[in-house]
């Protein structure tokens, strides 16, 4: 059973204020509907770290808010942990942890009071608070200070702890490393590794592609509310082009007609090109060339991402 499953999930803003029909638009101007999400079909497997990628306004937060029951779908449906996301919203939230992007906290409480309050609302013991606090280097003394005195990074750490302290089956994390320094980002990734090893599911929304590449098993990429790609991370990277740089003596190697090689650029004893798929034909073509140096850069998700975006660009 998938941890999260959506079918034709669609959301248009501006169609639902919640006010009774006869009052709709009477006190507030009714704007034309804006498409936020169009027919999203994804299935997140249990126990995987699932990356949800896209630039600002692509529909990432809308999807998350639909899954949490903050928004009502215009059409389509979704199931979270086997439960209907509209009908069983409260039961779903009992079993998940959520970190919103740019989390807002109660400034007049101490970190400890805040975690106690949110833990009590969860209705489950905060069994893992001490563990996550230690790993994120948030000491008990720090937790006794008022939240309003916290730095942005400390707020984010409290946000991560509140989402995970009750050991949820599913964690939905929206831009979780926002504001964390590189050391704390590492600590956070190790927490994700622990969760993954324990079979917890993590739905991870981000636009920091390097961290998605580092932690996710699969990624979905959304653009203007539509799903552009849903792939295994390894597969996505494997079929991406590699950046190759060659320094040579004498005549340049002839690569234009070699299978998988594109974008060949020559200049001043250097050759740059892209290689896609198997390296065998490329290496064979270099056999007779006088190569001084050869650099092959591994494919980065950024490039895969940008390429997918380029492909999905409307004509």
């Amino acid at each position: 059973m998938p941890a999260i499953e959506t079918a034709g999930l669609t959301k248009y803003y501006g169609q639902r204020s919640g006010w009774p029909g006869f009052l709709q638009g009477r006190f507030r101007p009714s704007a034309p509907p804006v498409r936020a999400l169009e027919s999203l079909d994804i299935a997140v497997r249990e126990g995987e770290v699932f990356g949800f990628l896209g630039p600002n306004g692509a529909g990432k937060s809308t999807t998350i808010r639909l899954l949490l029951g903050f928004l009502h779908p215009t059409s389509g449906q979704g199931r979270v942990l086997g439960l209907d996301m509209v009908r069983d919203s409260v039961a779903i939230r009992r079993r998940l942890g959520y970190l919103p992007s740019g989390i807002a906290l109660y400034d007049t409480l101490t970190g400890e009071q805040l975690l106690d309050y949110l833990g009590a609302l969860s209705g489950r013991p905060a069994a893992r608070r001490a563990e996550w606090s230690e790993r994120l280097e948030l000491s008990p003394q720090t937790l006794k200070r008022l939240v309003r005195d916290y730095s942005r990074g400390m707020r984010q750490k409290v946000g991560i702890i509140q989402a995970l302290q009750h050991d949820p089956e599913l964690a939905i994390l929206d831009e979780p490393t926002e504001g964390l320094d590189p050391l704390m980002q590492r600590a956070f990734y190790s927490i994700l590794d622990t969760l993954k090893a324990e079979g917890r599911t993590v739905f991870f929304s981000s636009h920091v592609l390097s961290e998605v590449e580092r932690v996710c098993d699969r990624v979905a990429i959304v653009r203007q509310g539509r799903l552009v790609a849903l792939e295994e991370m390894a597969g996505l990277l494997a079929r991406r082009k590699r950046n190759v740089q060659i320094r040579y003596d004498g005549p340049p190697p002839r690569l234009e007609a070699v299978a998988g090689v594109t974008n060949v650029r020559l200049g001043d004893g250097r050759l740059n090109c892209h290689v896609e798929g198997s390296m065998k034909p490329f290496l064979a073509a270099l056999a007779d060339a006088s190569i001084v140096d050869l650099t092959v850069e591994p494919a980065r998700l950024e490039e895969a991402f940008l390429e997918l975006y380029h492909e999905a660009e409307p004509a």
Binding site: L68, Y98, A104, L105, L118, S122, G123
Partner: peptide
């Protein structure tokens, strides 16, 4: 307006 509503409502609270 402060953004704390979603933190509270992400709990099992109708």
């Amino acid at each position: 307006q402060r953004g704390t509503l979603e933190v509270a409502l992400s709990r099992p609270l109708s």
